[in-house]
Protein backbone atom coordinates (compact mmCIF):
# COMPACT_ATOMS: atom_id res chain seq x y z
CA UNK A 1 0.00 0.00 0.00
CA UNK A 2 1.54 3.30 -1.09
CA UNK A 3 1.27 6.65 0.61
CA UNK A 4 -1.72 7.80 -1.45
CA UNK A 5 -3.64 4.59 -0.68
CA UNK A 6 -2.81 4.89 3.02
CA UNK A 7 -3.68 8.58 3.10
CA UNK A 8 -7.12 8.16 1.56
CA UNK A 9 -7.57 4.63 2.86
CA UNK A 10 -8.12 5.85 6.42
CA UNK A 11 -11.16 7.73 5.14
CA UNK A 12 -12.67 4.79 3.29
CA UNK A 13 -11.55 1.75 5.23
CA UNK A 14 -9.87 2.85 8.46
CA UNK A 15 -9.63 -0.55 10.14
CA UNK A 16 -7.67 -2.24 7.36
CA UNK A 17 -5.60 0.85 6.56
CA UNK A 18 -4.46 1.46 10.16
CA UNK A 19 -3.58 -2.23 10.43
CA UNK A 20 -1.42 -1.88 7.34
CA UNK A 21 0.20 1.35 8.58
CA UNK A 22 0.88 -0.30 11.95
CA UNK A 23 2.72 -3.14 10.25
CA UNK A 24 5.03 -0.77 8.43
CA UNK A 25 4.95 2.75 9.97
CA UNK A 26 6.90 5.42 8.08
CA UNK A 27 7.73 8.72 9.78
CA UNK A 28 8.25 10.54 6.49
CA UNK A 29 4.72 9.63 5.43
CA UNK A 30 3.40 11.04 8.71
CA UNK A 31 5.14 14.35 7.99
CA UNK A 32 3.70 14.32 4.47
CA UNK A 33 0.20 13.65 5.76
CA UNK A 34 0.36 16.53 8.25
CA UNK A 35 1.77 18.88 5.62
CA UNK A 36 -1.07 18.13 3.18
CA UNK A 37 -3.69 18.35 5.93
CA UNK A 38 -2.21 21.64 7.21
CA UNK A 39 -2.25 23.18 3.74
CA UNK A 40 -5.88 22.19 3.12
CA UNK A 41 -6.93 23.39 6.58
CA UNK A 42 -5.01 26.65 6.05
CA UNK A 43 -6.85 27.36 2.81
CA UNK A 44 -10.21 26.48 4.38
CA UNK A 45 -9.53 28.56 7.48
CA UNK A 46 -8.39 31.56 5.44
CA UNK A 47 -11.52 31.38 3.28
CA UNK A 48 -13.65 31.25 6.40
CA UNK A 49 -11.81 34.26 7.81
CA UNK A 50 -12.45 36.19 4.62
CA UNK A 51 -16.15 35.83 5.43
CA UNK A 52 -15.84 37.22 8.92
CA UNK A 53 -12.94 39.64 8.64
CA UNK A 54 -14.53 42.36 6.52
CA UNK A 55 -13.72 45.08 9.03
CA UNK A 56 -10.34 43.85 10.08
CA UNK A 57 -7.02 44.78 8.58
CA UNK A 58 -3.96 43.21 10.04
CA UNK A 59 -0.80 41.57 8.68
CA UNK A 60 -1.52 38.50 10.83
CA UNK A 61 -4.54 37.61 8.75
CA UNK A 62 -2.94 37.89 5.34
CA UNK A 63 -3.54 34.73 3.26
CA UNK A 64 0.17 33.95 2.99
CA UNK A 65 0.60 34.01 6.76
CA UNK A 66 -2.53 31.90 7.29
CA UNK A 67 -1.64 29.25 4.73
CA UNK A 68 1.95 28.95 5.97
CA UNK A 69 1.08 29.00 9.66
CA UNK A 70 -1.64 26.32 9.40
CA UNK A 71 0.76 23.40 8.63
CA UNK A 72 3.04 24.61 11.43
CA UNK A 73 0.07 24.68 13.78
CA UNK A 74 -0.96 21.20 12.68
CA UNK A 75 2.57 19.86 13.28
CA UNK A 76 2.51 21.27 16.79
CA UNK A 77 -1.02 19.97 17.47
CA UNK A 78 -0.10 16.54 16.07
CA UNK A 79 2.92 16.19 18.38
CA UNK A 80 1.10 17.48 21.47
CA UNK A 81 -1.99 15.31 20.91
CA UNK A 82 0.17 12.29 20.15
CA UNK A 83 2.04 12.74 23.44
CA UNK A 84 -1.22 13.05 25.38
CA UNK A 85 -2.92 10.09 23.67
CA UNK A 86 0.21 7.96 24.02
CA UNK A 87 0.24 8.61 27.77
CA UNK A 88 -3.50 8.00 27.96
CA UNK A 89 -3.19 4.72 26.02
CA UNK A 90 -0.50 3.59 28.45
CA UNK A 91 -2.80 4.36 31.38
CA UNK A 92 -5.45 2.14 29.82
CA UNK A 93 -2.98 -0.72 29.32
CA UNK A 94 -1.57 0.09 25.90
CA UNK A 95 1.60 -1.63 24.76
CA UNK A 96 2.65 0.40 21.72
CA UNK A 97 5.73 2.53 21.06
CA UNK A 98 5.69 6.32 20.89
CA UNK A 99 7.07 6.74 17.37
CA UNK A 100 4.58 4.32 15.84
CA UNK A 101 1.75 6.02 17.79
CA UNK A 102 2.90 9.35 16.38
CA UNK A 103 2.86 7.99 12.84
CA UNK A 104 -0.55 6.33 13.13
CA UNK A 105 -2.10 9.37 14.77
CA UNK A 106 -0.92 11.64 11.95
CA UNK A 107 -3.37 9.80 9.71
CA UNK A 108 -6.19 10.57 12.14
CA UNK A 109 -5.90 14.21 10.98
CA UNK A 110 -6.66 13.31 7.35
CA UNK A 111 -10.40 14.25 7.46
CA UNK A 112 -9.23 17.86 7.87
CA UNK A 113 -8.42 17.88 4.12
CA UNK A 114 -12.15 18.45 3.68
CA UNK A 115 -11.75 21.87 5.29
CA UNK A 116 -10.54 23.14 1.90
CA UNK A 117 -13.70 22.21 -0.07
CA UNK A 118 -15.76 23.21 2.97
CA UNK A 119 -14.07 26.63 2.91
CA UNK A 120 -14.85 27.06 -0.81
CA UNK A 121 -18.49 26.09 -0.26
CA UNK A 122 -18.76 28.42 2.77
CA UNK A 123 -17.25 31.26 0.74
CA UNK A 124 -19.73 30.62 -2.08
CA UNK A 125 -22.67 30.67 0.37
CA UNK A 126 -21.63 34.00 1.89
CA UNK A 127 -22.27 35.23 5.44
CA UNK A 128 -24.13 32.09 6.56
CA UNK A 129 -21.25 30.03 5.17
CA UNK A 130 -19.19 30.82 8.27
CA UNK A 131 -21.76 28.97 10.35
CA UNK A 132 -21.71 26.04 7.92
CA UNK A 133 -17.92 26.01 8.13
CA UNK A 134 -17.97 25.92 11.92
CA UNK A 135 -20.50 23.08 11.87
CA UNK A 136 -18.46 21.18 9.28
CA UNK A 137 -15.28 21.69 11.30
CA UNK A 138 -17.01 20.14 14.30
CA UNK A 139 -18.06 17.09 12.26
CA UNK A 140 -14.50 16.75 10.90
CA UNK A 141 -13.11 16.92 14.46
CA UNK A 142 -15.43 14.10 15.53
CA UNK A 143 -14.35 12.10 12.48
CA UNK A 144 -10.71 12.67 13.42
CA UNK A 145 -11.43 11.49 16.97
CA UNK A 146 -12.95 8.27 15.64
CA UNK A 147 -9.87 7.68 13.48
CA UNK A 148 -7.66 8.31 16.52
CA UNK A 149 -9.62 5.57 18.32
CA UNK A 150 -8.86 3.22 15.40
CA UNK A 151 -5.17 4.18 15.54
CA UNK A 152 -4.85 3.69 19.32
CA UNK A 153 -6.83 0.47 19.24
CA UNK A 154 -4.70 -0.97 16.44
CA UNK A 155 -1.27 0.01 17.69
CA UNK A 156 -1.74 -0.38 21.45
CA UNK A 157 -3.78 -3.58 21.13
CA UNK A 158 -6.62 -2.19 23.24
CA UNK A 159 -10.25 -3.26 23.25
CA UNK A 160 -12.66 -0.84 21.56
CA UNK A 161 -14.12 0.49 24.86
CA UNK A 162 -10.63 1.06 26.29
CA UNK A 163 -9.46 2.77 23.07
CA UNK A 164 -12.55 5.00 23.18
CA UNK A 165 -11.81 5.94 26.80
CA UNK A 166 -8.12 6.52 26.02
CA UNK A 167 -9.06 9.07 23.35
CA UNK A 168 -12.29 10.53 24.75
CA UNK A 169 -11.16 11.32 28.32
CA UNK A 170 -8.10 13.45 27.42
CA UNK A 171 -10.07 15.21 24.65
CA UNK A 172 -12.80 16.04 27.17
CA UNK A 173 -10.22 17.33 29.67
CA UNK A 174 -8.52 19.45 26.97
CA UNK A 175 -11.90 20.82 25.84
CA UNK A 176 -12.75 21.85 29.41
CA UNK A 177 -9.33 23.49 29.90
CA UNK A 178 -9.65 25.40 26.60
CA UNK A 179 -13.16 26.54 27.53
CA UNK A 180 -11.99 27.81 30.93
CA UNK A 181 -8.92 29.51 29.45
CA UNK A 182 -11.04 31.14 26.74
CA UNK A 183 -13.47 32.39 29.37
CA UNK A 184 -10.62 33.83 31.46
CA UNK A 185 -9.05 35.39 28.34
CA UNK A 186 -12.31 37.14 27.40
CA UNK A 187 -12.69 38.52 30.92
CA UNK A 188 -9.05 39.63 30.86
CA UNK A 189 -9.45 41.30 27.46
CA UNK A 190 -12.60 43.07 28.60
CA UNK A 191 -10.49 45.07 31.06
CA UNK A 192 -8.63 46.59 28.15
CA UNK A 193 -11.84 47.25 26.28
CA UNK A 194 -13.49 49.23 29.02
CA UNK A 195 -11.19 52.12 28.13
CA UNK A 196 -13.58 54.28 26.12
CA UNK A 197 -12.35 54.58 22.59
CA UNK A 198 -15.60 53.84 20.83
CA UNK A 199 -16.88 56.64 18.65
Amino acid sequence: MGFIERFFGVLINPSITFKEINENPKLLEAFGAILIVGLCAGVGGALNLSLIAQEIAHPLISPIVLIVSAPLGYFLTWVVISCILYASAKVFGGTGAFEASLILLSFAFVPAIFLAPLGVVAYAIGAFGAFIYTLGSFVISIWGMILAIFAIKEHHKLSTPRAVMAVFIPVLVIAIIIFVLAFIAIIYLEKFLTYPISF
Binding site: L39, C40, V43, G44, A46, L47, L49, S50, L51, A53, Q54, I56, I61, S62, P63, I64, L66, I67, A116, P117, G119, V120, Y123
Partner: peptide, 17 residues
Amino acid sequence: SVVVGILILFQAPAIGI
Protein backbone atom coordinates in the same frame (compact mmCIF):
# COMPACT_ATOMS: atom_id res chain seq x y z
CA SER B 1 -10.61 23.23 -3.74
CA VAL B 2 -7.08 24.11 -2.65
CA VAL B 3 -6.28 25.70 -6.02
CA VAL B 4 -9.61 27.55 -6.22
CA GLY B 5 -9.31 28.55 -2.56
CA ILE B 6 -5.85 30.03 -3.05
CA LEU B 7 -7.03 31.91 -6.15
CA ILE B 8 -10.01 33.29 -4.21
CA LEU B 9 -7.86 34.26 -1.24
CA PHE B 10 -5.46 36.31 -3.25
CA GLN B 11 -8.33 38.26 -4.73
CA ALA B 12 -10.67 38.29 -1.74
CA PRO B 13 -11.13 41.87 -0.69
CA ALA B 14 -11.23 41.28 3.06
CA ILE B 15 -8.03 39.40 3.65
CA GLY B 16 -6.53 39.16 0.22
CA ILE B 17 -3.53 41.10 -0.90
